[in-house]
Write a protein that binds this DNA or RNA. Sequence first.
DNA 1: GAATTGACGCGGC
DNA 2: GGCCGCGCCAATT
Length: 106
Amino acid sequence: MPIPSGYDDMYAVVRRIPGGRVATYGQVAALAGRPGAARQAGYALAALPPESDVPWHRVINARGEISARRTTGPFETIQADLLRAEGVLLDDRGRVDLERFRWDPP
DNA sequence: GAATTGACGCGGC
DNA sequence: GGCCGCGCCAATT
């Protein structure tokens, strides 16, 4: 069975991330069947509209930080707020404890 | 069709 | 702990 075209795979993986958990771009890429293509994962989410049913806010970089997309806008603040609302704790630097909140895929 | 760009990850120094 | 270079794929110009 053929793989879905475009970033569909990435979106599917992100949708499987349970609330209160976070995943890294590399993790999403690997689960989508493209290990090493972390860039691809990031770009895929970047192209996602905020209206999407994909919880893109649960995806962060390997440092546990919220990646700044272009300019320091309200978006990163919103993402942090959404994560807190799910029970994910952020430290003073806006970092997530990956050892604690990293999604453990089946 | 080629070149450029874009929310990254990891190894090495 | 921070900086450098390479790899990765798709969409856009």
